[in-house]
Design a binder for these strands. Sequence first.
DNA 1: CTGCTTCTCAACGAAATCTTGACAAACCGG
DNA 2: CCGGTTTGTCAAGATTTCGTTGAGAAGCAG
Lengths: 225, 225
Amino acid sequence: MSPKTIVVVEDEPIIAAAVAARLRKETFRVEVAGDGPSGVDLCNRLRPDLVVLDVMLPGFDGLEVCRRIQKERAVPVLMLTARDSETDLLVGFGVGADDYMTKPFSTRELVARVHALLRRASRAQEPNGAVIRIGEIEVDPASRRARRAGDQVHLTPLEFDLLYLLASHPDSVYTRSQLLTQVWGYNDDSSARTVDSHVVSLRKKLGAELVRTVHGVGYAVGGDG
Amino acid sequence: MSPKTIVVVEDEPIIAAAVAARLRKETFRVEVAGDGPSGVDLCNRLRPDLVVLDVMLPGFDGLEVCRRIQKERAVPVLMLTARDSETDLLVGFGVGADDYMTKPFSTRELVARVHALLRRASRAQEPNGAVIRIGEIEVDPASRRARRAGDQVHLTPLEFDLLYLLASHPDSVYTRSQLLTQVWGYNDDSSARTVDSHVVSLRKKLGAELVRTVHGVGYAVGGDG
DNA sequence: CTGCTTCTCAACGAAATCTTGACAAACCGG
DNA sequence: CCGGTTTGTCAAGATTTCGTTGAGAAGCAG
């Protein structure tokens, strides 16, 4: 198993170095960015397993970084905040952070929380790495590719994440709200119908029978059909 | 292991603070909301492991909060009520709370119940919601499918919810009022006959003997048959 | 900047579902 | 058995939800 990759976005060099060193000791692969834009860039290129994110940053702040990262793909985010004010916390969680720590913090606690987040994430993605098969459809999370009867089908990022979540739990019904929360990373009631559009795309590309509509509730894939 | 998260929804600051402080002492991560809407919001964002919920709240009351939270995902709820009569009411309505405490209560007892609920919840976290079997009928909440003697039977949303509630408590008699409250989410006396229509549908699809009429009271499923 | 891909969102008709009211049938106490 | 009450049945109409489409926004590579 290749080492987990962690991106640290932190503008104070001393803290960044300390965090990076401590995490490398845990055999993580760690890369550091010093401002918002390069942090987003780094995340898009490395596709890390976790991001440690300071709230106060040059360029644009941690909240914006978090939003942009999460928009690309779901990844656990550990936020570092300077103040303990509750509004900061809540706003932080609003953008999709999974945990937070208030400075100053012990590196020991940081390590513990990182491990906890990674464990939670890997547990949530069960079965991880395995190719999922639903009828004539194959979904490979490692390469983010899907096949239909052996032929590769191009899926957009959202289409793939949506399919992967549904296919990971065959026959289980997901509400639009749940799908928005878990795939999109936010849950705006007004955009519930956006899910429908992507379901349409999936059906067009992979066959209308793949996704089952559960009237009044949501969608599911697989099962006996 | 990351700390369990608990959301406390309580509008009296003194009680909220006391509860939060005591639970934090147990190494729980605790967040507080002061009214119904922000309580629901907080729960959707934090995805807590347990919710402590006051019945009397600004915005909309605890019952509504409970309903909305449970709609999103299953989570243990500990209800706080001012009077014993309220507790009876809640139990009768079965709003989906898992335990109740009447004010005033000791924080020691609160802690005990919280631990008990979490223990129970972790034990009950088997993969998907358990399939319920009543005679030759199977009800699967995860896929929202029902089978009769192995053959799948299509149910509409209300039909399924109605069956699932009744089947979850075999042999328990529910009044039309209770069914309206729990399945429909409101309780308009004038529409009591609506329940009958859906019972008719269930009987037609799954067999007349499935739902037992208790004359003058309501309906029940299972039991002696 | 231009062209391309992807995503969002509103709108429309179509489909599924729900409600309601009327009447027949069943129940129950006396 | 009788009369009042409760329940069973049915279908038309109202309502909700869904499928589909396309225009526009946003992002990205060249």
